[in-house]
């Protein structure tokens, strides 16, 4: 019951954030006019703002945020580690390295998002080979992920020292994760990924909840623990890779969204749906601040997710440390 109320509230908050994102600023479409999207009687300027500028950006933020939330929820359930997230296993860093390589070193060979996708895939292949047990041992994945992270970041930093300041600044903005100037193609890609992955994640999450009670019990109940874990990791990686391809390695959404969701619903298990909504809300909020916040410079949204998500997680931790002892 509580999780339904939480889900509805999150969805309402998401709608409010979306309306504000579209309405604020010089080019904003007033909230009262937003409903006219349905009847398609927009003026040319409003149509341009909604269809080209802010519409795709908002949709990308919402879908990619949801993807990251799902990914983080599955990953944290599998690793039983509150810090487990696709950032930790080196996926985001791999994507950064790919983007930097094709954006600065071999320019013009591949577009940046494809480079990021390639980097993420290479990082995951390294992870698979590095653990010696594939994706079946979460703890090993985190340890090997630290190594992949370090290599990828060192590579990025090295490339950045070899280029001019302007190029380096441009790529640094992308590497932080950005929702600026995205098209409906990006939205379609991410939405398609969600349509495929979300139902599978929901099915798996019921099994994961049983697995959390212990491997033996889960095996006895028919929710084969090893297989459930393996497919959860695969799903988590797919969801995160799709999101990273679309918005770049946005920090901290996959890590904080499941944490916030779990504390809001107060229910065990991965909370996949709530985490997806929370992820979407976090990324949309951050994107709203990035677009309409008090800072003049257009900073990439990843900076705000890290700041907002980090501060909120810190607040949660402090209150929790006060109450209980972990």
């Amino acid at each position: 019951m509580r999780s339904i109320v939480v889900g509805v509230s999150l969805f309402a908050a998401l709608l409010v954030t979306a309306a504000l994102t579209l309405a604020l600023g010089d080019l904003g479409v007033p909230a009262s006019r937003l409903t006219s999207i349905l009847w398609a009687d927009l003026g040319p300027q409003e149509a341009f703002v909604l269809e080209r500028l802010r519409g795709p950006r908002l949709a990308v933020a919402a879908t990619a945020g949801a993807g990251l939330g799902v990914s983080g929820a599955l990953f944290q359930a599998v690793t039983r580690n509150p810090l487990g997230s696709p950032d930790v296993i080196g996926l985001a860093a791999g994507a950064s390295a790919g983007a930097a390589a094709f954006g600065l070193m071999w320019t013009g060979v591949l577009p940046l998002p494809v480079g990021a996708l390639l980097g993420a895939i290479v990082a995951m292949a390294l992870l698979y080979l590095g653990t010696g047990q594939g994706f079946s041992s979460p703890t090993r994945m985190i340890i090997v992920g630290i190594g992949i992270n370090a290599m990828a970041l060192a590579f990025v930093q090295w490339i950045i020292t070899r280029t001019t300041r302007e190029q380096a600044t441009a790529i640094a903005a992308y590497i932080n994760g950005s929702t600026a100037s995205r098209s409906w193609d990006d939205v379609r890609l991410m939405a398609a990924a969600l349509v495929v992955l979300l139902p599978m994640a929901l099915v798996l999450s019921r099994r994961l909840r049983i697995v959390e009670m212990g491997d033996d019990l889960a095996d006895a109940l028919g929710a084969r623990a090893d297989r459930t874990r393996f497919w959860s990791v695969i799903l988590a990686i797919c969801a995160a890779t799709a999101a990273v391809t679309v918005v770049g390695p946005v920090a901290f959404v996959a890590l904080t969204a499941p944490q916030i969701a779990r504390r809001l619903t107060r229910s065990p298990g991965p909370n996949v749906a709530t985490a997806a909504l929370t992820g979407a809300l976090v990324l949309c909020l951050a994107d709203m601040v990035a677009q309409h916040g008090p800072i003049d410079a257009q900073l990439p949204v990843g900076i705000f997710t890290a700041a907002v998500g980090g501060v909120y997680l810190g607040y949660l931790l402090i209150t929790e440390f006060r109450r209980v002892s972990i």
């Binding site: 640094a172 903005a173 990439p300 705000f304 890290a306 700041a307 997680l313 810190g314």
Partner: peptide, 20 residues
């Protein structure tokens, strides 16, 4: 956990300042 939080917030700050 606290280290992870501070790392994230400071990294965001570093990126924001260095990009501007």
């Amino acid at each position: 956990l606290a280290g992870a939080v501070i790392n994230a917030v400071l990294t965001a700050y570093i990126q924001a300042v260095s990009l501007t």
